[in-house]
Amino acid sequence: MLGGLSAAVLSGCANKPQTYNGPEATRLRLYKSQRMLVLDGVSEPLRTYPVGLGFAPTGHKQFEGDGRTPEGSYLIDRRNPESLFHLSIGISYPNEADKTFAAAQGKSPGSDIFIHGGPRPGIDPTNVRDRTAGCIAVTDSQIEEIYAMVRDGTPIDIYA
């Protein structure tokens, strides 16, 4: 029993990206109200995933710490194989409009919005469905697929 538990914990740390040789993911669409992420190919959707959102899942992210997931058009702009949440890919929030709005209110727009897997060992997994502070959460196996299928520069449209 203990050997199986050790193997499960160690496999959780083995977050090496998968390889993918299928059709290119050309766009991502997130439907927040449906908690659904769609990876589109050139002519049809390639994959659909259920997601968890920030602890305040409705409304557009405006300020650092508001717990909201952004809405609008962004890009996948970075990847983090050493994320605290298994693998993660970054979203280009905040854009210029987000920065301008927050600055006019005298606040920070926040940053570091990612699509990520579950927490690594030692991270508190409280509130599994909406466990993020504005990110988009999927399972570890799902982020491994997404990480392999999506390239930096891929557009992501986030709808209410």
Rank of each mutant, 00 (worst) to 15 (best):
S11L: 10
I76V: 14
S141I: 08
E64L: 14
L28P: 02
E24V: 13
A7C: 12
E145N: 08
P125Y: 07
M149C: 07
A104R: 10
E71H: 06
E64I: 05
L5A: 11
P109E: 07
P50H: 12
G12P: 01
E71D: 12
S43Y: 12
P121R: 00
R79G: 04
Y159I: 05
R79I: 01
T48F: 11
Q142C: 11
L84V: 07
G59F: 12
G67C: 09
G65N: 03
Q105N: 12
P109L: 02
R78S: 15
S73V: 15
R68G: 00
P125I: 04
A148N: 02
L53T: 03
V150D: 08
K16W: 12
I89V: 14
R27N: 08
G67Y: 06
G59E: 12
Y20I: 06
T100I: 12
R131M: 13
E144R: 09
N21E: 15
I89S: 05
Y20D: 05
S108C: 06
M1C: 11
D66C: 01
D40H: 14
T26W: 10
P125E: 09
R47S: 12
R78I: 00
N127L: 07
I158M: 14
G54Y: 06
S141M: 07
G118E: 15
T69E: 08
D157N: 11
G12M: 13
H86W: 03
L53F: 06
E24K: 14
G4N: 15
G52S: 01
N95M: 08
A102V: 08
K99T: 12
P81R: 07
G12L: 13
M149A: 09
L30N: 06
V138P: 03
P17S: 07
A25G: 01
D66M: 09
I123H: 04
E44A: 14
N95R: 02
L37F: 03
I113K: 00
D98Q: 03
G153H: 04
P94C: 09
